[in-house]
């Protein structure tokens, strides 16, 4: 019990962030029209690509003679970059089509 309380008090900032983000995440997309489900999923997919920051840290901390760490980190960076760049580009391509339609309506 003590250790749990200890853990909560040392990590309280993080725990607050987690709780607030859960509510925010639900609130922010609560009224999304079904047309946007796919692009929204894709956009969210790109945002969790933020995991690449962890990969960069792992890579950057690895000693230059520790090949296991270097290789693991390298792959992590490659995959993370794939997730981020691919995710945002795919989302943009989907949304581009919505925009084209809008311009036409304006004319």
């Amino acid at each position: 019990m003590d250790s749990v309380l200890n853990w909560i008090s040392t990590n309280q900032q993080m725990i607050y962030i987690v709780i607030l983000m859960i509510f925010l995440g639900i609130e922010v997309i609560g009224r999304v029209p079904s047309v946007l489900h796919t692009p929204l999923m894709s956009g969210a997919n790109a945002i969790h690509g933020v995991v690449i920051i962890g990969a960069i840290i792992v890579m950057g901390k690895a000693e230059s003679n520790n090949y296991t760490a270097l290789i693991l980190g390298f792959f992590a960076v490659v995959l993370g970059a794939l997730n981020v760049v691919g995710g945002f580009v795919v989302t943009d391509r989907m949304l581009e089509m919505f925009k084209k339609k809008k311009q036409k309506n304006g004319n």
């Binding site: 990590n11 993080m14 962030i17 987690v18 983000m21 859960i22 509510f23 925010l24 995440g25 639900i26 922010v28 997309i29 609560g30 999304v32 489900h37 929204l40 999923m41 969210a44 997919n45 945002i47 969790h48 690509g49 933020v50 995991v51 920051i53 962890g54 840290i57």
Partner: peptide, 29 residues
């Protein structure tokens, strides 16, 4: 959520917010 675990690991708030945000929004979606 996996990305958010990384946020905890490095006390990295960008990873934590991004990860949890997607975790919550993704579940609702």
């Amino acid at each position: 959520v996996a990305a958010a675990c990384g946020g905890f690991l490095y006390a990295n708030k960008a990873m934590l917010t991004g990860g949890i945000l997607v975790g919550a929004a993704g579940t609702l979606l």
